[in-house]
Computed example of a mutant assay.
Amino acid sequence: MPNEFNQPVIDEFRANNGRVGGMFEGARLLLLTTTGARTGTPHTTPLGYLPDGGDRVLVIASAGGSTRHPDWYRNVLAHPRVTVESGAFTYEAKAVVLEGEERERSFARAVEAEPGWAEYQEKAGDRVIPVVALYEIATPGPPNIRAGSIGEGLKLIHDNFRYELALIRKEMGEGMREGTRKGSGSPDTLGAQLRVNCLTFCQGLHNHHTGEEAGLFRILAERHPEATPALARLREEHERIAALVEELKQVVWTAGEPAAAQAEVERLTAELEAHLTYEEEQLIPLLDG
C-alpha cells in the first residue's frame, strides 16, 4: 500500500490525468507500480522522471538522500516488469538499472536539470544513487489511454502535448532569465535536459501525426466523406508543423543560440495550438457521435 504521503499524490495524479499541485506542481511525474520483492503484492510510487529522447524514460532511486535504497528500487531488482502511468497512458515496461559510464552520464544530466539530485547524492554518503531506465513493452492493439471515448482520448493526447510544450517554454524562459541574472543576457548553450525534452516532444508529436494519417484519418474519410476537406487541411497542417519541428530540432541538436531556439518554440506553439484546436472542433463530434 502507498504511504500516507504518496497516496494523496497518486489520487490527484489519477484524477487529473497526471497533473498535480503543491510541491510537485509543474513537475514531470509518473506512477510506477512494482511487485514487492518479499510480498509479491503491487506497490505504486509517484516518481519524477527524465525524458530520454527515445523509447525509454529514466527514474532515479534517490530516496530523498537516504543511505538505503528505496523499496521500489529493491522491488525492480527482484521483478523488473513494472507498470507505468504517465497521465494519458498506462503501459507495461521493463526496468533496467544503468551501469558504469551510462549511469554517470545520465545522473550528470539529471543534476544539470535539477541540482537537488547532487544534494541527495551527497546526503546518501557511500550509497551510489541508482538510475533506472523504463522501456515500454510493445503490445498489440491500441494504447491503453485514460479516456471514456475516442474523442476524449484525442483531447487528452492533445492536452498532453500542450502541457509538455508549456514545460519546455517554461524551462527555456528560466534559462534565459538565469543568463540575464548572470549578466550575459542569455545562457551560452541550451541545457542537456532541455535538449532531450525538446527532442522527446518532437518525436512524440511526429509519431502521433503519423499514426493519425495511417489510421484515424483513413477511417474517418471512409465513414464521413463530408470530413474530406477538414482532413485535407489537417494533413497540410501536419506538413507545416513537421517543418517547424525540423527547424527546432536543428537549433536544439546543434546547441545553437538559445534565443533562436526560443523563437522556434514560440512559432511551433502558435501553429500547433491552432492545429489542435481546429482538429478537436472538426473530429471530436464525429468520433463521439
Rank of each mutant, 00 (worst) to 15 (best):
E280R: 05
L154D: 05
E136N: 06
T139H: 09
P143M: 13
L231N: 11
A274W: 04
F217R: 08
Q262I: 04
R267E: 10
E247G: 09
A221G: 04
H209C: 06
E266V: 09
A243N: 12
G211D: 14
A270V: 10
G185Q: 03
G204T: 01
K155G: 07
K170L: 12
M176F: 03
A255Q: 08
V245P: 00
S186C: 07
A263V: 06
A243T: 13
E279G: 10
R233I: 05
L220P: 08
R177F: 11
G204D: 05
Q203N: 15
I150N: 05
Y163N: 12
L248V: 01
G185N: 01
M176T: 03
V265G: 04
I157E: 01
K249P: 03
G256H: 08
T180R: 15
A260C: 02
L276S: 07
E237M: 03
H209N: 11
K249G: 06
H238E: 02
E246D: 15
L272F: 11
V245F: 06
V251W: 02
A221D: 13
A147C: 07
S184E: 14
T254Y: 05
R195M: 13
L167P: 05
A259Y: 05
E213F: 04
R195C: 07
E222L: 15
L220S: 10
E273F: 08
L276H: 10
R169P: 01
E247Q: 13
I150P: 00
A263C: 05
H206C: 03
G183K: 06
I168G: 03
L244E: 04
F161Y: 14
R146N: 14
M176N: 01
T200E: 13
K155H: 08
L190K: 00
V251E: 10
E239M: 12
I168E: 02
T139V: 02
A230G: 09
A259D: 00
L205I: 09
R162L: 11
R233D: 15
A192E: 10
I137N: 02
E246G: 09
G211Y: 08
V196W: 07
L276I: 08
E257W: 03
C198Q: 01
L220V: 15
T228Y: 00
A227M: 08
F201K: 06
F217I: 06
H224V: 11
R146G: 02
P225H: 07
L154C: 09
I168L: 05
A261S: 07
A274C: 04
E174D: 15
E239Q: 15
C202A: 15
P142K: 05
E212Q: 07
K155S: 12
L205N: 03
E247R: 13
E237Q: 14
E178R: 10
A166C: 04
T269V: 10
E247D: 15
T269K: 14
A221S: 14
Q193D: 12
S186M: 09
L248E: 00
L234N: 05
R162C: 07
L248T: 08
I150A: 13
A166V: 09
L194K: 02
V265F: 09
A227K: 08
E281F: 09
R218L: 08
A270S: 03
A230H: 15
